[in-house]
Computed example of a mutant assay.
Amino acid sequence: MNSSPVQQALRVFLVEDSIPVRQRMAALLGAIDGVEIIGEAEEPGAALAGIDATGADVVVMDLRLIGGTSMELLQSLARRISRVTIIVLTNHSGTWFRQACIAAGAQYFFDKTSEFDLACRTITRIAHERCVRGLNDSTR
């Protein structure tokens, strides 16, 4: 009998307007040990509903979305009592965008074209920290 606790995966919700990009992100991020892609959306309303319904731990979002602005979504997520880790992963990587997203509540900001591997490493670290924290909590 295995008495070690089963660790829950880091639940990641993807918000990206491009279906092929979203599928690639889901495949790459979902392959990270300890990560589960629990939902996807291409517009802010569906994203908010999906994030609420799934209890996501992390939201990976683009700045360009269908039917609304991602800044409104970002601000809505940042104001919530039940906080999620917000990672902006976008092609709009200028200094102004980076500063605006961090000021609005994003914890991380990455350029899709040059920092995708760094984003993956960050999600891996977050999943690992969650696992270690869970193990520490279960031994108390």
Rank of each mutant, 00 (worst) to 15 (best):
I86Q: 06
D62E: 04
V12G: 01
L63T: 02
I86T: 13
Q99M: 12
D57A: 11
P5W: 07
V60E: 00
L63M: 13
I126E: 02
V15D: 03
Q8A: 15
R24E: 14
V59Y: 02
I51Q: 02
E115N: 03
Q99C: 06
A100T: 10
I32S: 01
M1P: 10
E43F: 10
W96F: 15
D33M: 06
G134I: 02
F13R: 03
A119W: 01
L135C: 08
I102T: 07
I81R: 15
S114C: 07
Q23D: 15
N91P: 00
I123V: 15
E36V: 06
G94F: 04
Q107T: 07
S93F: 10
V58D: 00
R22V: 04
V88H: 00
G67R: 11
R80A: 14
S138I: 06
V84L: 08
L48M: 15
P5C: 04
R98N: 05
R140D: 13
G50C: 03
Q107R: 14
R125H: 12
A26S: 12
A100F: 02
S138D: 13
R80E: 14
L89G: 00
T69K: 15
L77G: 07
V60L: 09
A119E: 01
L118M: 13
V6D: 12
V12R: 00
